[in-house]
Structure formats: structure tokens, C-alpha cells
């Protein structure tokens, strides 16, 4: 009986652990979604411009059609000129082909712009779906440059941070005053990774360090 009771307790503990882990995972996913919504470029100006363009363009067309159906053309659009142009233009004309290519390019550009934009701030790791923290890319760059310059012998360092919450890449280019680089790249790598760990940004980052010495 005692064994059975212990078994039940163990099962309950395991279940509680699994529920806790799943809750944690769900919280992290919510936090990630919230951070994405907050920190990714919104392209509000593009949305607004397109919405206004659609509203004005389609509204004008509708008014013109209704006016013409009612027998009193509003004259908002050069309908006669457009019809004449379309009647005289042939499918084989170079202009028609060019217009098609231009429209395809515009459509492709709009489709590209409808994809999520660049991370304006790099998100900080968080498990709360109602909380998001972020840090500017240039601040991360400055902090990591400071970490690289903190390594003994490093005279100059330049850091680039690419990517957002996923596939983030940190590229460090440093110069040492010594005649050979020895283990400076490893030291810089360790310093930068330690500082990155301190920043606790969402997602992992690949660090690429290249060091030049006085001899080139």
C-alpha cells in the first residue's frame, strides 16, 4: 500500500512539474509574441498611405460610375481618354508589357512590405505575457564594444549586431597593439559572450570575432 501511495505521489509531482513547465513555456511564447508586436517595425505610414489611396481611388471610381449610370457624368476621372487609350493600345505594345512588369514589381514590393519589419529594439528574455523589455541595437553595440575593449591589449574594437530575436549575429572586429594576436580572440569572445549573457536577450546569438595585430 505504501508503495502504491508513493507511486501516486510521484505521478502527481511529475504532473505538477509538467504543468509548471508547460505554463512557463506558454508564458514565454506569450511574452515573445508581445515583444514582437511592440518592437517590430509597424510600417504604420505605409498602411495609412495605402488605406487612404484605396479609399480615395475606389471612392472616386464608385462616384464616377454612379454618376454616369444616373446620366450625369461627374468628370472626376478622364474616362473618355482612358477608354480611347485602351482601345488603341495593343497587347503586343511595349508599353503594355512594361506596365505589366511595373505592376508586378509593385505587387511584389507590397507583398514584401507586408512581412514583419525589422526589430527596432532587441527583446529581453521574459516569461510574462503582459511585460516586454527591449534595448536599442546601438546600446547593445556600445555595451559589447566596452566588453571587447576591456580585454587586455585591445586598442580598437567595432561591433555589429544583426538579426532580432532569432538568428542574431554579433560580429566583432578588434585590433591589438601586440605583435601577434595569441589568445586575444578567445578572450574577446568570452568577454562578449559574458556580457551578452548579462543582457539576457531573447534568443541565442552567434559571435564572430576577428582580431588584427600590429603586424597586420
Amino acid at each position: 500500500m505504501g508503495d502504491v501511495g508513493r507511486g501516486t505521489d510521484d505521478t502527481r509531482d511529475e504532473r505538477a512539474l509538467i504543468i509548471e513547465l508547460l505554463d512557463d513555456l506558454a508564458g514565454r511564447q506569450r511574452a515573445r509574441r508581445f515583444a514582437r508586436r511592440e518592437f517590430r517595425a509597424r510600417r504604420a505610414w505605409l498602411s495609412l498611405a495605402l488605406a487612404l489611396l484605396l479609399a480615395l481611388g475606389a471612392g472616386t471610381v464608385a462616384v464616377e460610375i454612379v454618376a454616369r449610370v444616373a446620366g450625369r457624368p461627374a468628370g472626376l476621372l478622364p474616362v473618355a481618354d482612358a477608354v480611347a487609350l485602351l482601345r488603341t493600345a495593343r497587347w503586343g505594345d511595349r508599353g503594355v508589357g512594361a506596365a505589366g512588369v511595373a505592376l508586378a514589381a509593385a505587387g511584389a514590393a507590397l507583398l514584401g512590405l507586408s512581412a514583419p519589419g525589422r526589430w527596432r529594439l532587441l527583446p529581453v528574455r521574459c516569461g510574462d505575457g503582459r511585460l516586454a523589455g527591449g534595448v536599442r541595437r546601438r546600446d547593445v553595440r556600445r555595451v559589447l564594444t566596452g566588453a571587447a575593449l576591456g580585454v587586455h591589449g585591445v586598442e580598437r574594437a567595432r561591433v555589429r549586431v544583426r538579426g532580432g530575436a532569432a538568428r542574431r549575429r554579433v560580429r566583432v572586429r578588434a585590433r591589438t597593439g601586440y605583435l601577434n594576436v595569441a589568445n586575444t580572440p578567445e578572450l574577446i569572445d568570452a568577454a562578449v559572450r559574458a556580457r551578452l549573457a548579462g543582457l539576457d536577450l531573447m534568443g541565442d546569438a552567434a559571435v564572430d570575432v576577428r582580431v588584427t595585430c600590429r603586424n597586420g
Binding site: 505605409l46 495605402l50 511595373a102 508586378a104 505587387g107 507590397l110
Partner: peptide, 13 residues
């Protein structure tokens, strides 16, 4: 809206 505009342009193209 963006997708609609893209679809309209794409269809024409």
C-alpha cells in the same frame, strides 16, 4: 489592405 493592393496589382500584372 496591403495584401489586397498587392493582389490587385499582381492580378493586373
Amino acid at each position: 489592405l496591403v495584401l489586397c493592393a498587392a493582389a490587385l496589382l499582381g492580378a493586373d500584372a
